[in-house]
Computed example of a mutant assay.
Amino acid sequence: MPTPKQQLRIGLIGTGFMGKTHVFGFAAAQRVFDLDYDIVLHTVADRSEELAAAAAQTLGFSTSSGDWKTLIADPDIDVIDITAPNALHKQMALAALAAGKHVYCEKPLATTAADAAEMAQAAQAAGVRTQVGFNYLCNPLFSLAREMIRGGELGEIRSYRGIHAEDYMADAESPFTFRHDPAGGGALADLGSHALATAEFLLGPIERVQGDSVTVIASRPDGKGGRRNVEVDDLGRAFLRFASGASGSLEASWIATGRKMQHDFEVYGTKGALIFSQERFNELHFFDTSDRQGRRGFRRIEAGPDHAPYGAFCVAPGHQLGFNDLKAIEIAGFVDAIAGKRPEPFGFKAGHRIQSLVEAIQRSGLEGRWIDTSQ
């Protein structure tokens, strides 16, 4: 019989959209990948005992709690998984780190770069493993695109365009949420953080930014019969200069009518170009200038087993991965880091970097000048 694996016991805080996605990711990762641990859904916490108990029953946790601090204090829990509202990330993560637990936190890591830096320093001091939820980076076609760029298939990279646009805030009468609070919101922080992470994943460090942030919907219903003023941005844009010499632009919008999940990039080089859209995220489109005249055009590269780890999910090309599969890939990388098999895929230090870029773009817009973001 095979030797039993050591358990990795998970304590989840928050059971909304991303909380459920994390649970699906843990379940799939354990079955798709040969992990060094058996993942155990130990305890889930939510705003009340009733909500937590219902979530435990639905999601498969052994126990539940209406107080997230009980998860921190429980010596049987190895990993604290934070999917609570952004403004709560710092308090929860620092408590978990002080207790010597590994921490998995949805993005943004914190609501300010200063807080994110404090969290990254605490993680380093604790000697544990951390992960920030940027699972779009786990798409096998992102790795292929980076491989093609670094391998010179596009030649010298001249320019980049990135966008993350959705429409879940397009209705001016939709209510004020935690995302509209200056302590934890804004389209640039919520969506632009993904676009920034993608840009640096593909092209390396961004060394200068010039930004502009716009609040389009000035107030929203407060749920009490009145309205509350909105101070955060609905649109965020930036010009980028990369350390490589390439230049680019980026846009984040949560009022892009009709867009449900547009996380796109375009990369243009002297020998070729790449185009990607999250709305068809099993496809990467490649233009090669070495094609002869009359036969030129963007050709589709379809995700398949040749693009690891696609083959761990499905042996047939063209059958497509989904959003939750990307979360499973992210979790597998995090678990491998806990096992000491690889560095952290996207730890708290990387999360701090993205928050620093967000704030640099915001400050640039206020000051009307380029901001240095070189590391």
Rank of each mutant, 00 (worst) to 15 (best):
T3M: 06
K5F: 03
G11T: 10
L12H: 11
T15Q: 02
G16A: 13
H22W: 06
F26W: 15
A28C: 00
R31V: 00
D36E: 14
Y37I: 03
V40Y: 10
T43E: 05
E49H: 10
E49Q: 14
E49V: 12
E50K: 15
E50V: 14
A52I: 11
A54V: 08
A55N: 06
A56D: 11
T58L: 05
T58H: 05
L59V: 09
S62A: 15
T63E: 11
T63D: 12
T63M: 01
S65E: 02
K69H: 15
D76T: 15
V79N: 05
I82Y: 02
T83K: 00
N86H: 11
H89T: 05
A96V: 08
G100I: 12
H102S: 03
E106A: 13
A113D: 12
A117G: 00
E118F: 00
M119K: 00
A120E: 11
A122F: 10
A122H: 07
A122Y: 10
A125K: 14
T130I: 07
F134Q: 10
F134W: 01
N135L: 00
Y136P: 00
C138S: 13
S143V: 03
E147C: 06
L154V: 06
R158N: 13
R161Y: 11
G162N: 07
I163R: 13
H164P: 01
D167H: 05
D171L: 08
E173C: 01
T177W: 04
R179L: 13
R179H: 14
G184H: 10
A187H: 09
L188R: 02
L196W: 08
F201Y: 15
L203I: 06
I206K: 10
V209A: 07
Q210K: 15
G211F: 07
D212K: 10
V214A: 03
I217L: 11
P221E: 11
P221T: 10
G223P: 03
V230P: 14
V230C: 08
L235M: 11
G236T: 13
G236L: 10
R237G: 13
A238Q: 06
F239E: 14
F239R: 14
L240S: 08
R241G: 01
S247E: 13
S249E: 15
S249N: 11
L250P: 07
G258E: 12
M261V: 02
Q262A: 14
Q262W: 12
F265M: 01
E266Q: 14
E266R: 14
G269T: 04
K271T: 02
K271A: 15
I275Y: 04
F276C: 04
F276G: 07
Q278L: 01
Q278A: 15
E279C: 04
F287Y: 15
F287M: 09
S290F: 09
R292F: 09
Q293R: 06
G294K: 05
R296H: 04
R296G: 08
D306Y: 02
A308T: 08
C314N: 14
V315C: 00
A316F: 09
A316R: 15
A316C: 00
A316I: 07
L321R: 05
G322I: 11
F323K: 08
N324R: 12
N324D: 12
L326V: 00
A328Y: 02
A328C: 06
I329C: 05
G333V: 08
D336W: 04
A337C: 04
I338S: 06
K341Y: 02
P345D: 06
F348C: 01
K349I: 03
Q355H: 09
S356L: 10
R363W: 03
R363F: 05
E367C: 01
G368E: 07
Q375W: 09
